[in-house]
Design a binder for these strands. Structure first.
Lengths: 150, 150
DNA sequence: GGAAATTAGTTAGCATAGCTAACTATACTC
DNA sequence: GAGTATAGTTAGCTATGCTAACTAATTTCC
């Protein structure tokens, strides 16, 4: 039996791995959400702000696409960030589009928040032996590749 | 400079890996959420139901703890599941506690939903070369280990 | 040049999901 | 039996997701 289903092994493995990966991602974020909340900014706002800080200024639609949400959702997220003084909007030549940019305050808050966010995870990660830390790095790259093919 | 900071390399790597891992987890779930929505059940309900189906019956407080949410939040999630006929509640000797159990319908819906959920991810995962698929499996185990230390 | 179509973003309204504070009901303690 | 502790619920707030319907600006095309 162990070899009898060899033909399907890769497929079954893929499903099993996908399932575990999915579950792991859920539990990972559930833990980190606790630290996220210390920043006083919601996770969606933090994530959108991070795109602007590390990826540079862009339009609302582009930001929505980057964050995989619909424009109305992003519109409200940006409104919250603006209200908090973390994002500024500029007019563009195209009168329909806006150019969204992180403010200095937004950049600062994000970097602090980001630091806090990965702090717990870093601790757990850096407890790994050197070799496994390196593996985790490779596998994170692999995961990013998988996500791009999603 | 490349060797000058060697002492901090592991630490910096850990932060960088943690950050990328966090970001990857966010984007992974954001993609999979699309499939989740086909089930007509919200992600929190699906996840709570999955604990009952695969982990067995338990009280509301235990379920809240397993899901890392507060009791009022779980109370509402369970109310939704009950309304949809996916979960049943039984009295216990202790009149304060309830015993939550997945119904047959809940079990069925969950299994179907679970299948759909990992379907897209499985596809992306099984597109990997054999060697990298195996690496990803190891990675997931490593990730689960990291999460336990979180 | 102007009408029609397209595109960018917003507003309105709904649902889920997270929280704290305050409540009810049951069980335990002394 | 009175007081305390525990399990869940209710109420009310915020954030995030959606679709539908709207406004405003640009582009297309006759």
């Amino acid at each position: 039996m162990a070899d009898g289903k060899q033909k399907n092994r890769a497929g079954r493995d893929a499903v099993q791995i996908a399932d575990q990966l999915h579950s792991a991602a859920i539990h990972l974020l559930r833990r980190l959400r606790v630290r996220d909340r210390e920043s006083g900014i919601g996770p969606a706002q933090l994530s959108a702000l991070s795109v602007l800080v590390f990826g540079g200024a862009r339009s609302l639609g582009e930001l929505a696409e980057a964050e995989q949400v619909r424009p109305p959702t992003m519109s409200r997220i940006v409104a919250g960030l603006e209200r908090a003084g973390l994002v500024r909007r500029h007019a563009t030549e195209d009168g329909r589009r806006v150019r969204l940019e992180a403010t200095a305050k937004g950049t600062k808050i994000l970097q602090e928040g980001r630091k806090r966010r990965v702090e717990s995870l870093s601790l757990a990660v850096s407890a790994l032996p050197r070799k496994e830390l390196q593996q985790l790095g490779e596998f994170t790259a692999l995961l990013q590749h998988v996500i791009r093919n999603l």
